[in-house]
């Protein structure tokens, strides 16, 4: 069975390591924060100027001066810090953030990603996504394997405007964990009960399949 949003987030949370500084994008990536393993400590960075994002505030305690990059009210943790936008992107551009998790419209087998613009339809802007994908040491894309019309989101070329090139390292979808290698997409794991054949059929690019592909352990 394919994973739901929380399943994808849960699987991505397994990629977190103790001591990581992590930037989580809007949507499924935000949910990763709910599944951080108990035995490790990670610090979440918000590009609007907060290191150490805490949980949402209790009702009646929301502070208009304290928001995340999705403009939602949040709180701090012990050890949080605030800073201005240029310093925030110095952390990102300077390679100090260990992992970025973000959503995508399309990802290619060379690691290109489109995620910010649908010409003539959606013109919201790229926000910090281009800075993040151009500079992060490790980028995981959280996405459904196909779009609403059942078309593959993993392909050989992005049809929509690019966010960045040659940057995505790993894709965790509702069907599979796929690594972007020098030779293209490589299937690492499949969602419980999902066959290798189904994954191949729903991927719009060649897929390297070596040996038995294990099921994800969630």
């Amino acid at each position: 069975m394919s994973l739901d949003k929380n399943g994808i987030a849960k699987r991505i949370a397994q990629e977190l390591k103790d001591g990581y500084y992590v930037n989580l994008g809007i949507g499924i990536p935000t949910l990763v924060a709910n599944y951080v393993p108990e035995n490790i400590e990670v610090v979440l960075q918000s590009e609007n100027g907060l290191l150490g994002i805490g949980p949402f505030p209790k009702k009646g305690e929301a502070d208009p001066d304290l928001i995340n990059a999705g403009k939602q009210t949040v709180t701090t943790i012990a050890g949080s810090s605030f800073f201005d936008s240029s310093l925030s992107f110095a952390m990102i551009r300077g390679g100090h953030v260990d992992l970025t998790v973000l959503g995508a419209f399309e990802v290619t087998d060379t690691g290109d990603i489109s995620s910010w613009k649908i010409p003539g339809k959606m013109v919201k802007g790229m926000g910090g996504a281009m800075d993040l994908v151009a500079a992060a040491k490790n980028i995981i894309v959280a996405t459904t394997h196909t779009d609403r019309n059942g078309e593959p989101k993993l392909k050989t070329k992005c049809d929509l405007p690019l966010t960045g090139i040659k940057c995505v390292k790993t894709i965790v979808s509702d069907l599979a964990v796929i690594e972007v290698t020098d030779k293209g997409f490589k299937l690492l794991e499949r969602a419980p009960g999902v066959s290798v054949e189904e994954i191949i059929a729903k991927t719009g690019a060649p897929l390297i399949v070596e040996g038995d592909i294990p099921e994800m352990k969630l």
Partner: peptide
């Protein structure tokens, strides 16, 4: 409208 990556915008200001 001129859309600019957020970090680039911040650094151009700085």
């Amino acid at each position: 409208v001129d859309l600019i990556p957020q970090g680039t915008l911040a650094e151009r200001l700085r």
